[in-house]
Amino acid sequence: MPPRTRAAEPTWHRAQPAPLVLVSGPESLLADRAVELIHRAMGAGVALTALDAGAYSRGALLAAASPSLFDEPGLVVVRGAEAMNDEFLADALAYAQAPDPEVVVVILHGGGVRGKRLLDTLRKAGVPEYLCPAVKKDAELVDFVRAEFERERRPVQAVVARRLLDAVGGDVSELAAACQQLMNDVEGTVDEESVARYYGSRVNATAFAVADAAIAGDVRQAIALTRHALSSGVDPVPLTAALAAKLRTLAKVGASRGRGLDPTKDLNIAPWQVDRARRDLRRWTAETLGEAIELVAEADADIKGGGRAPHFAMERVVRRVAQLAAD
């Protein structure tokens, strides 16, 4: 058997029934999806038994995997194998030597070293394993959102997925629920306005769009979005707030490089935000970033009462920040 790499692609979506199945990885939503696929593939009339490996009692696995009196196909789902007790380890090792071919036993392991002996035994025996790695990076989360819509044949553009990510955050379960609600409630194509209507005001959605365009150095798009927002009655205050927040994140992630800090653990920045910031930082230096932060602070003071033309101050700061990124 070739060496197994932990960087392998997620395979949960290929899950199929087998006498023994291992579903591994920390993303519980994907693990649940794998179990659903196996259950569905077994057809109707499946006798389902759920076990908890951490609160397991000796003999429960063998009892659950025993043939049904009515010859119903059996599915045994064992959760929490990453916290398995010694009783489960002993029974699972014994069962793995001769699994019942008429029953499907699925073991879910969320990661860690607990139960390594069992995992090694299952892998060495060639038991099919389906991976459910954590979905944390910005690109992974965007792909996840788009895949949720594609599963229902309701594809969305990447910008829509990013808007939903900005509004809901990086929790996969919450993102999946948000995608489902949008598909249930919105007829036709789900667009940016749909996301704004359900998961944040148009002001917030527009503010993030302006900030993204400016930080990416897209001067024309940033100005167009700013003018549209201001002409439609959006207050400039949330626009500067979004721009300031984006710049602060860039500064924190950039500074963490030289200080040996982990932005997620030490600065409490979500992994997907770190991933996006690192991509955006390719356009910035410490000097231009510092200048942009000062420009936004000055504009914020003008907009909140220090100046007489808040709309002009807003457009000017967006243009200057975008130009700094573009140069």
Rank of each mutant, 00 (worst) to 15 (best):
M1N: 12
T5W: 07
P19Q: 12
P19E: 08
V21D: 03
G25K: 07
E27W: 08
L48P: 11
D52P: 06
A55W: 04
S57C: 03
F70Y: 11
V78G: 06
L93E: 13
Y95S: 00
A98T: 15
P99S: 06
I107Y: 02
L108T: 10
L108V: 13
H109V: 02
H109R: 05
R114T: 03
R114I: 00
G126E: 10
G126T: 11
P128Q: 12
P128G: 09
K137W: 09
L141C: 10
V142G: 08
V142T: 08
F149M: 03
L164G: 03
L164E: 03
V172P: 10
E174G: 10
E174H: 14
A177Y: 00
A178H: 04
C179E: 11
L182F: 00
N184V: 13
S201Y: 00
T206P: 05
T206D: 14
A209P: 09
A209S: 14
R220A: 15
R220G: 06
A224R: 14
T226V: 09
R227H: 15
A244W: 06
A245P: 04
L247T: 01
L250M: 02
A251D: 12
G254L: 02
S256E: 07
R257A: 12
R257S: 01
G258W: 02
G260T: 05
P271L: 09
D280A: 12
D280T: 06
T285K: 05
T285C: 00
E291C: 09
I303S: 07
H311Y: 12
F312W: 15
V318P: 08
R319S: 10
R320W: 09
Q323H: 04
A325T: 09
